[in-house]
Amino acid sequence: MAKLEINGNAVNVDAEPDTPLLYVLRDDLKMNGAKFGCGLGQCGACTVLVDGKAAFSCVVPVSVLEGRKITTIEGLGTIEKPGPVQRAFIEEQAAQCGYCTAGLVMRTEALLKATRQPSEAQIRDGLSPNLCRCGTYNRVIKAVQRAAQYMRTASAEAGSDKT
């Protein structure tokens, strides 16, 4: 039995401790966001956040996740109310088949959490653990820039609310 906190919800999953998080998300919890791409930590299709940092869920056994905060793309927003990064990807039409996209969205989320105003070089390096075969990288880079903008505006507004 693994006790996990996913997108702010406590969940108990009947899974062997060595089960990689990806299989728990997809198979036990029927969540779609994290994708199986290689199972080897090479492609990033399975990227989620663990305590706000990007992780390859295909090589993270659930046994190490007790007490950690897991965020998946389902936790960033909904189709009706997408979060800033999701919105930016939609607006830049930064997908073709879209299979890699959720992982890239999560990679972006982690990047912008760590660096509010990343340079283009930081974005390119930050995204590079994740592969896209369809050739969307340049649109994704634009989406990251747009998302950074949204996040800054959002926090500026939140800031001005306080004053």
């Binding site: 969540m31 793309i73 960033l76 189709i79 990807f89 997908a95 879209g98």
Partner: peptide, 20 residues
């Protein structure tokens, strides 16, 4: 805008892999 992208960036069932 592409009709399939919103589901793909929000964890919707979009692929055969999501068919259960």
């Amino acid at each position: 805008p592409r009709v399939d992208i919103p589901a793909k960036v929000t964890g919707g069932a979009a692929f055969i892999q999501d068919f259960r």
